[in-house]
């Protein structure tokens, strides 16, 4: 589904953010990407739907090469859902309209159809009664659930999560993770950048550990948590975030 091959990215000639990253996510697989700040994990996930350009290597999404100038990027992006750390709901649109906009403007759905789909998804994330509100009237956890619903409204073939719970208060994290766990169990292909090791342990198939732009570990969940991770860096990182 997602193939990442030898991806290199430089912010400037002297600063390389991604170094020869190679991995893949197969259909229905849930892959968690973790690592310290600045390790390039957010950048990598943003390369998958070409929100960030990269200079070397290639990424192939469902058979379509992302870094091919001939690729219709808006069309490709519309098939991949993305959830951001800061939710990024559109503040001037009501919740239901946040879900309808891209359905209508990108997929060309009729308003009634888009709205019905939106309401169904809002019900699914438990926010149906908030449909007529504006984003600023919702809590962070609620906003993030709306953001997930907004991405799902496009019927994506895969979902990308960029630290979806990092900006949330602790008591709101679980409501978002619950939605993600359900999604994973339904067989959605997911690539998730997160520090939530509990989530990784529960639903991930594989865990990727990144450090300084490199993929240091790329292991089955059981190997990553159960066995000993192969690198010192991963062990140190895990010991720090699992300590408390």
């Amino acid at each position: 589904m997602i193939e990442i091959k030898h991806v290199n990215k430089w912010y400037s000639p002297s600063f390389q953010v991604l170094k020869d990253c190679t991995t893949s996510v197969t259909k229905g697989e849930v892959v968690v990407v973790c690592g310290p700040s600045g390790s390039g994990k957010s950048t990598l996930i943003k390369c998958v739907n070409a929100l960030e350009p990269f200079q070397g290597g290639e990424i192939i999404l469902d058979g379509v090469k992302v870094n091919d100038p001939k690729t219709d990027l808006p069309k490709l992006r519309s098939r991949v859902g993305m959830v951001f750390q800061h939710f990024e709901l559109f503040p001037h649109l009501r919740i239901v309209d946040n879900l309808c906009l891209a359905q209508e403007k990108v997929l060309g759905r009729k308003h009634d159809e888009a709205q019905a789909k939106g309401m169904k998804l809002l019900e699914r994330v438990g926010l149906k009664e908030h449909a007529r509100k504006f984003p600023a009237e919702l809590s962070g956890g609620q906003q993030q659930r709306v953001a997930i619903a907004r991405a799902l409204a496009m019927d994506p073939i895969a979902m990308l999560f960029d630290e979806p719970t990092s900006a949330l208060d602790p008591e709101m994290i679980s409501e978002v993770l619950d939605v993600m766990v359900d999604l994973a169990r339904e067989g959605m292909t997911m690539m998730v950048v997160t520090h939530e090791m509990g989530f990784a342990n529960k639903v991930a198939d594989r865990v990727i550990f990144m450090d300084r732009g490199e993929i240091v570990e790329d292991a089955k969940k059981t190997d990553f948590f159960g066995g000993t991770p192969r690198s010192d860096r991963a062990q140190k990182f895990l010991s720090k975030i699992l300590q408390h």
């Binding site: 739907n49 929100l51 992006r77 403007k105 990108v106």
Partner: peptide, 25 residues
């Protein structure tokens, strides 16, 4: 910055992102 990213990630073109998201705000 994430607003433009969110619009782009949903498949909106640059013109659509400005028309429906960035300019109204």
């Amino acid at each position: 910055r994430g607003q433009k990213n969110a619009a782009t990630a949903l498949g909106l073109t640059t013109v659509q992102s400005y028309r429906y998201i960035l300019l109204p705000m």
